[in-house]
Design a protein around this nucleic acid. Sequence first.
RNA 1: AGGGACUUAGCUCAGUUGGUAGAGCGCCACCCUUACAAGGUGGAUGUCGUCGGUUCGAUCCCGGCAGUCCCUACCA
Length: 897
Amino acid sequence: MLMCQQVELSDRYNPQDVEGRIYQWWSRNGYFKAEEKSTRLPFSIILPPPNVTGSLHLGHALNHSVQDLLVRWKRMQGFNVLWLPGLDHAGIATQSVVERELKKENTTRQQLGREKFVERVWEWKNQYGGRILEQMRLLGDSCDWDRLVFTLDEGVSKAVRKVFVELYKKGLIYKGLKLINWSPALESAISDLEVEHKEVKGQIYHIKYPLADGSGALEVATTRPETMLGDTAVAVHPEDDRYRELVGKMVQLPLTNRTIPIIADQYVDREFGSGVVKITPAHDFNDYAVGQRHKLPMINILNKNGTLNENAGPYQGKKVQEARKQVVADLEKLGLLVKVEPHTHQVGHCSRTDCVVEPFLSEQWFVKTAPLAAPAKRVVESGTIVFEPESWTKTYLHWMNIIEDWCISRQLWWGHRIPAWNCANCKKVTVAEVDPDKCAHCGHAGLTQEEDVLDTWFSSALWPFSTMGWPEKTELQETFYPTSVLVTGFDIIFFWVARMIMMGLEFKHDVPFRTVYIHGVIRDAQGRKMSKSLGNAEDPVKLIEQWGADALRYTLISQIASGRDLKFSTQRLEGYRNFMNKLWNAARFSLTNLADFVTPADGLDALPSKSEMSHADQWIVYKLGVVEKEVDEYLKAYRFSDAANTLYAFVWNVFCDWYLEFIKPVFHGELDVTQKRATQLILAQVLNRIVRLLHPFAPFITEEIYQKLPIRSEAAIIDTYPHPRNDKALLALGSEEVATNMDLVREVIAAIRNIRGENRIKPGLKINVRLAPHDDKAQKVLGENKVAIMTMARLENCEIGEAGNLSKCAVQPVQLADMKVDVIVPLEGLVNIEEEIKRIRKAIEKLQKDVAVLTQRLSDPKFAANAPAEVVQQGQRQLEESKAQISTLEAALARLS
RNA sequence: AGGGACUUAGCUCAGUUGGUAGAGCGCCACCCUUACAAGGUGGAUGUCGUCGGUUCGAUCCCGGCAGUCCCUACCA
C-alpha cells in the first residue's frame, strides 16, 4: 500500500468533482439551446422569473427540479425544448434594497431625485442582481441561457406599453379615486393580494356619541378609536326597534365640532355590540360601501406616511398608535369612554414590509377585470387549461368569480412608468406607446408623465409572450406559444397564473399554457414554514455543496406527491446521497467487469441472442421493461415521486441487490466465454438504460457515468429516454416466464437466509441445504440456478431432490405461481434448535391467522353468493396452500426435538 | 363565518376502479463476504383519528364528531 496505488474511480461518489465540469460541458456543447424553427415537436416552459434581488431558496430548488425534470425528459424524448429563463425587476423589493444603501449614506431617494435614483438601482442590479442565475446552474437547470429576459428589457417594456395602451383604449384600464390598500411604510398602494391578514390581540373601545339635541347618547364600539375623527355617520340596522326613531337625527361627534347623521343600513349586525356602528368611509372598506350607498362625505384623516393630517385637528402629525392613545385619553376625560375590552381580530399587514395596511382613499390606476376574467374562466372550465393536481381548478374558479378590479399603480420609482401624460392646458390624459410631445386632445406641449409605475405583476402577466418578442411577430412565438406547462406554487395562482391567462387570451387570442402544475410549499422537519426570521431556512447552495445537486433534486422530487406541502429533512437528503453513492458503485462494479468488453460495431443495438442469455439476464431485461413502462406512465401523469421511487427501488432492490449478485459467478467462477459475453452485453445495455432513465432526476451523476459506458451515444442529456416502444429489440429478450422462475429462486435464497438469520448461523459459515421441489418445473428451475443459490445463500453443498429425513432440520415451504419447494437445512451440530422451534412456531402462528380469516370468510354463504368467482377461488386456493404449509411446518417441528 | 385539505408503523409519507396494509428513515441482531459500512443479511412494529351507515366484505364509498392545517372574507 505504498506508492503503487492504481488510479481508479473512488468508492465514494464525490459530486464536487463532477457537477461543475459536467455543467460546463453541456453548456459548451449547446445542449440547452432551443431551435426557433424545427421539424421536431415543440415543448416549452417559461421559468417563473425570480426576483433580481433573490437568492436561491429551497422553494426555487423544488420548483426548478420539477421543471428541469420535465425539460430533460422531453428533450430526451426528442422534443425541440425551450426552457426560457428570466428575471423580475421586483419593484418594491429592489427599491427597498437600494433605499437601505442610501440610508447608510445618509441620503434618500427623494434627495437624489428620480433619475439619479433609478440610475443607482440599475447600477445595483448590474453589480449584485441576478445572483440566483448562477445558483440555478449549481442545481443543474438546463435553461436556454442565451434567451434570458429581464422584465425591464426594452422588448418587454414595449410589450408592457402596448398592452397598457390597448387596454386603456378599450376602457379596460381607468384612473379613479377609490379606497385602496395603502402601505404607509412603502408609501404606496398595494393590491388586495399583497395584504396578509394576521390575528392581532387588540382592544375594543366602547364610546358614547351624544345626540345633538341633548336627549341622550348612542354607544358605539370600535377597535380603531382614532378613525372617529373621520366619521361621517353612525349606522343602525333599519329593523332595529331600539333605534328606529333615532334614524335621521344627528349626533355630536366627540372631539370635533361636527354633527353627523344617524343612518339605517342592512350592513349593521344587530347582535354585535350595541348594534350601532360608526361609519368612516375613507378608512374602512365596509364603511366605504355604506358611504357610497348613503352619499356620505368622505374625510381622509391620514397622510401618505401614516400620520394624521390636517383633518385630524389637534391630532395632526401624530402616528396612528399615538393618536389612538391620545383620543382614548381625551374621551375618558370627557366621560365618553364607556369601557375597554380585550379583543382579537384580523388585521391586514403588508406582505412586503409587515406594516399595518391602511385603507386609504386615493387616485389610482385600475384594470377592469370582469371582462377579462370571463374568458379566463371558460378556458379552465372547458379543460383547455388543466390544473394538476385537478383540485386547484376549484380554487381558481372560485377566485375568478369574486375577482375585483386590479389596482396596478404603485408609488415607486423602480419599474415600468405608466405611459400616461397629463396636459397642463386641457388637463386631459394622453396615453401612448411612444412618448408624446404634445397633448392628444388639445395639442398643447405642456405634458407631464404620471409619476407612478406599474405593479410588477403587470409585466409578469405578459411573460409567456413578452419574452418571445411580442408585439413583433417572431418565429419563437410561432414555435413555442402556447407553452406546454407552467410549474408554480399555489401561492401565486392569483397573482400570476390567472393574470397570464387573462392577458394571453386578450392579446394572443390563445391560452398561455396547456397545463398548470401546482406544487406545495417546503416546510422544515417540524412542519413550519421556512423563513429567514425563524432561522430554519436551509440554503440550497450549501446543501448542494455538502450532499450534491442530484441528491437534493432526488429528495425534493421523491416527496412532491399530490401537490401537498413537503417536509424537508437532511436525514432524508442523506438517504438519497447514499442512493447516488449506490448507483456510483454499481457503475464502478459494472465497468470493472466490462473492462475487457469490446464494444461491437453495432454499438447501441448490440445484443446477444436469447439462447446465449442466462436466466438472470432474461429476468433483469423483463424487469427493466416493466420499469420503463411504469416510469413513462407516472411521468405522463405528473406523478413524479412515484417515478422517482420506482427507479430507486429498481436500481437498488432489483439491479444491485439481485442482478449484480446473480452475475458475479459469471465473472468470478470458471469462465464460460459465450455466457460471459452475453452477460456483459446485457449488463452494458441495462446500465445504459438505468443511467438514461435516471438522467432527468439526477442529471450530473448520470452524465458522468454515461460518459464512461462502453455502450453509449454522445451524451445522456440528448440520448433517447427509454421507453418500451424504443427498446423493442432489447426487451424482447426478457421473458416473463423466466422472470417468474427467477423470482422462485430469489424466494428460495431468501428462505435460506431467513433460516440462517433466525437461527444465528454465522454469515461466514457455509452450510448444507436440501431443496425438495414438489414438481418437475421447480426441479428444473432450481437445477439450472444452483450456482446462484449456492453463492448467494453461502452454501457448502446444495442437494436437489427428495425431502428425505427431516430429523433436526429447519424447514421452510416456498411457493410461487404453480411451483413449490421445501427448503430444508439440517441443523445438527450447527445451532441450538430452540431458535428454530421458535421460528417455526412463529411461522405457523402467522399461517393459522390467515387460515382463520379465510375459513371464516369462505364459510359465509353470502360471501360465496355475492363475491366474484375469481375472488372466491383465490381464497380457496390460498386456504389450501396455507394449510399445506402448516402441515409441512408441523411435521418439521415434530422432528426437531 | 364560508370553502378546502389532512388524520395509516417511532418519524415522513405511498396505498387510483372496496377483497386479509407498504416504502424510506429510525430501531434490534449478526456481519468490514473481493462495487458500495454512505454497505450487506435477517428481524420487530399498525383496533389505517372516532362513532355510525351502505356492502357478503370498508384504510378506500356516504354521514356525524374530534383534532391539525390552508385558503377566502370579515363583526365594527
